[in-house]
Design a protein around this nucleic acid. Structure first.
Lengths: 348, 348
DNA sequence: ACGAATAATACAACCGGTTGCATTATTGAC
DNA sequence: GTCAATAATGCAACCGGTTGTATTATTCGT
């Protein structure tokens, strides 16, 4: 049986409260007493019971983390990196992570996330993939639980941390344009995610700044999965072969795009350049290595925790927004177009 | 303030215990009373406080999960899939997941894992990547906490769930041999992991059964990361160019191997065939798609939980071992060798 | 109609901590 | 030497549940 405060108190002929205070560093206990207590604690390996402490203090030192992975949803390695960073930083701040994976019921149901939030087991929560009108926001506010989104939340009263989606996309697409690409396709993320919109806007802005017009025929909606990128690319190729580059709004979709292009007999980057977004480590191991926009995944993870901690300790109820810079990461998947316009033989 | 048992009791002029028992389905409370209680609970949205319950029952309905990801270690998408499956199954059984990411101190320290295990916050623990003489086993046994490994643990008294590493590797390598490959290199995992040994043994067995001898010159130790696979492959290529196939002991190392081969100017599969292990979804998106041994990741996840639940409820203190079948997943990264022996021009 | 069996509920201790306040011991001032 | 201030510790309530046992109300047999 693991020793309790009471055990220590009995051994030392003290009261629970004194022992508790000694351990908590309360200046009211005499130095000599504290020393006896600490020595004994060390000796018998006393470790406070976090559950009991949680009940007494109503703080669990635990953070809820909602990650989009589950048997139904394809998993994006991005989130494993993120998870690692969050876990590490949380530990540094003395917090544990309680996980909520995606709902198995799918259907965009957030039941498991909300149950975790409302369970009185966590002090705060980290949410990912904010949606345009995210229903979770209302529910979380009602619960009066501090929370932070990874990704831009629409509601200005919500705290979030995000990479510079718009700016990063714009910069990278501009790079494609500078290389001479005139018709750049885009495979977007799911419409309801704010990140999709922002990256697409970056794409649009780059085109606009170059005086190019947006052509809806070479834009297709993906879903941030490999399979989605593959399908989206195929649908574009079906009726439109006159493109020289593709911007996929995340790396795993870019993998799908590359596969679709290969299957269509197109060479990367000779026939079509491909650009991703996220900068997951695997991007460098593609053939050819995928040019992408590197998000500072580690910093995103640490910042999310820092912001959340601030919110949890914070008297300041004011929301915090952090945009972290992203970086264009060039690689062999992009090159100048081989011909001025269109590269696919057989184009009209 | 969220309502408590006492609140409900006061409203209904009952005692805490009656309300508690009604909610727990104790047959001693009258049906009519139970109905009043359930109605009120529904109405005011009563939800029992898991922390208080945990203190009282000494069961937290939480499972600890140690996943190898963190800022120091490269992350294997395999574990994100696994995480999803585990999370989903855990939820079905009414358990939450408390995460322990890799230690940031590296050095193979398992401090954070052990702290979680010893924290009295979890009812059982899932550990990954068992090592040959895994120090965690001793510590966990001392703590008297049920636990299950993903992967074969050496100690026969420890429960584990694993894919058929040896059999799967043997079968797949045999397939390479049947295709006519005479010199098959192998990039192993870290020596201290049991999975590495088993997969390597499968490789050896396949060679032996075909009457081929093991050549240490074309075996290199990787570390289950892309970079490790890359480096290992390069070191093999340095002094040994007479190979026609490579078996990498997991998929992400295979990605590194493919990169190293490409950089050496070798075509896959024309010059060298590549075989992986794990069957992560990304394997199909490589160029060429990577042949691999598909582990039933979902089933591994669900089985791990099932076994752990059995251990936690279990009167039977006897360990449970489950080997799940794996499946060779052919793909274009393997093909018959173009020449009888060796494919690299310039070989002696 | 009475005692025993049974059904329904209440009481109180407990899980292992934290914390406001009371109590005791020590010290210093005058 | 007395009293107030101060230091050190103890008491007891509390967090929100669970659970063993006591208590009260009802039913039944005879």
């Amino acid at each position: 049986m693991r020793p309790t405060l009471q055990d220590m108190a009995s051994i030392l002929n003290l009261s629970k409260s004194t022992v508790s205070r000694a351990l908590a560093g309360d200046p009211r206990v005499a130095e000599v007493t504290r020393h006896r207590i600490l020595t004994l604690a060390q000796q018998i390996g006393y470790r406070p019971n976090p559950v009991a402490r949680g009940l007494a203090t109503r703080r669990t030192n635990t953070i809820g983390l909602a990650v989009p992975c589950g048997p139904r949803s394809f998993s994006d390695p991005f989130y494993l990196e993120f998870l690692g960073a969050v876990g590490d930083t949380a530990m540094k701040y003395g917090y544990s992570l309680l996980l909520s994976t995606a709902d198995s019921d799918g259907a965009g149901g957030y039941r498991s996330h909300m149950e975790l939030a409302d369970s009185a087991r966590i002090d705060g929560m980290i949410l990912t993939e904010p949606k345009v009108a995210d229903e979770r926001v209302r529910m979380l506010k009602e619960m009066d639980l501090p929370f932070v989104f990874l990704g831009v939340a629409q509601d200005p009263n919500v705290s979030w941390v995000s990479g510079d989606n718009r700016g990063g996309a714009a910069k990278a697409v501009t790079r494609l344009i500078e290389l001479g690409h005139m018709r750049i396709a885009c495979v977007t993320g799911p419409r309801d995610q704010t990140a999709s919109g922002a990256r697409f806007e970056g794409y649009c802005r780059a085109l606009a700044e170059a005086g190019m017009s947006l052509d809806r025929n070479i834009v297709a909606a993906g879903d941030f999965t490999q399979a989605g990128g593959y399908i989206a690319m195929r649908s574009i190729l079906e009726h439109e072969k006159d493109i020289s580059a593709v911007f996929a709004c995340n790396d795993v979709m870019a993998f799908g795009v590359m596969r679709a292009l290969r299957e269509a007999g197109l060479l990367i980057p000779n026939d079509v350049s491909v650009l991703g977004f996220d900068g997951i480590p695997l991007a460098r191991y593609m053939d050819p290595p995928l040019a992408t926009v590197r998000q500072p995944i580690l910093e995103l993870g640490t910042t999310v925790i820092e912001v959340l901690v601030e919110q949890m300790n914070g008297k300041s109820g004011c929301p915090i927004h952090r945009v972290l810079p992203v970086e264009f990461q060039p690689a062999c998947s992009i090159a100048p177009p081989e011909r001025a316009s269109g590269s696919v033989s057989g184009a009209v």
